[in-house]
């Protein structure tokens, strides 16, 4: 039976939803499941994780761990894996988690598979490749298996249990503490960048004129997402190139992509086809975008979007 450790990333005194989702998945796969929270003053947080599927949660609590830097966390996790005999360590994708997992893989000489969207009980991971055009089955041949799951793959499930909190030993290598946090990030007011956004609202020529980008901006704000643009409107000067999604712009794979007045030519498609859910509003029923959207709406976006913005705001409050 597997003995699984899930890295529970936290930020501003809350465990990240993605980590809780991975914890729920681990619980579902069975075997012994433990979580670990690493930082300063995290014992309470660790206790709360019991409600999401962990029987045991380790807390590595030390002032030296207060900054969210990867290398000290590798030290803590490696010791924990060796001391407790975990054979599987799972992470939810994040900048920090990816750095930790790679360092940990070397420390433990363990195989690491990343960008997984699923994992089976018999140790087969599923991983999209080549702009999601292929799904690869991946495995491990090492004793300890490390895996990083794509952001937002699993939902957190509140099972309502409670966890036993144990202290994890904190023994840091000398090189692990050489990098120091001078100033930590503040909460961003302007919303996520296109690359990181879970939600993107993109505008195309169907918006009609540059001023109408306000519709995309309002919807993005209501949904907590970022605004993107097609090449055509960037060419026409309606929106900056930094927002361009497509073959000659950015490639994004958010959870939700809302395409307003976008025809869906392949040059645009290759930049966003990896999105989990695609909603398109276009008044042309033959627009190619309808061939690859999950919900296609044939209609006038100038009427639909303002209403949708109101409804979303109402629901969120």
């Amino acid at each position: 039976m597997a003995k699984t450790l899930v890295f529970l990333e936290h930020h501003e005194n809350a465990i990240q939803k993605g980590s809780l989702g991975v914890l729920a998945k681990a619980a579902q796969l069975g075997g012994e499941v433990a979580g670990v929270v690493i930082g300063a003053g995290v014992r309470e947080l660790a206790a709360g994780a019991g409600a999401f599927g962990a029987a045991t949660v380790f807390a590595a609590d030390d002032a030296a761990l207060s900054a969210p830097l990867p290398q000290p966390r590798v030290d803590v996790l490696a010791k924990l894996v060796r001391d407790e005999g975990f054979d599987t360590v799972l992470f939810a994708q994040s900048v920090l988690a990816a750095d930790i997992a790679a360092g940990l893989a070397v420390r433990l000489e363990a195989g690491l598979n990343w960008d997984l969207v699923d994992l089976s009980g018999d140790g087969v991971g599923k991983r999209p490749a080549l702009a999601d055009s292929v799904l690869v089955d991946v495995g491990w041949s090492s004793d300890v298996r490390l895996a990083i799951f794509r952001a937002g793959t699993f939902d957190a499930v509140e099972t309502g249990g409670s966890a036993e909190v144990k202290d994890a030993v904190v023994e840091l290598e000398d090189f692990s503490t050489r990098a120091e946090m001078v100033e930590q990030a503040h909460a961003e007011e302007q919303g996520p960048s296109i690359e990181d956004a879970d939600v993107i609202v993109a505008g195309g020529r169907g918006l009609g004129e540059p001023e109408k980008f306000a519709l995309a901006e309002e919807l993005a704000k209501a949904l907590g997402g970022a605004v993107a643009a097609t090449r055509a409107v960037v060419d026409a000067g309606w929106y900056p190139y930094s927002a361009q999604v497509g073959q000659t712009g950015k490639t994004v794979s958010p959870k939700l992509y809302v395409a307003l007045g976008i025809s869906g030519a392949i040059q645009h498609k290759v930049g966003m086809q990896g999105a989990n859910t695609i909603v398109a509003i276009n008044k042309d029923p033959n627009a190619p975008i309808f061939e690859f959207s999950d919900l296609g709406v044939v209609g006038d976006l100038h009427e639909i979007v303002p209403k949708l913005v109101e409804l979303v705001r109402a629901r969120r409050s």
């Binding site: 893989a105 000489e109 363990a110 195989g111 690491l112 598979n113 087969v124 999209p128 999601d132 055009s133 292929v134 799904l135 690869v136 089955d137 991946v138 495995g139 491990w140 041949s141 090492s142």
Partner: peptide, 12 residues
């Protein structure tokens, strides 16, 4: 030797 393996390719 590799510690990870690629087992199969599937259509998405």
């Amino acid at each position: 030797g590799a510690a990870t393996t690629v087992l199969a390719l599937n259509p998405p």
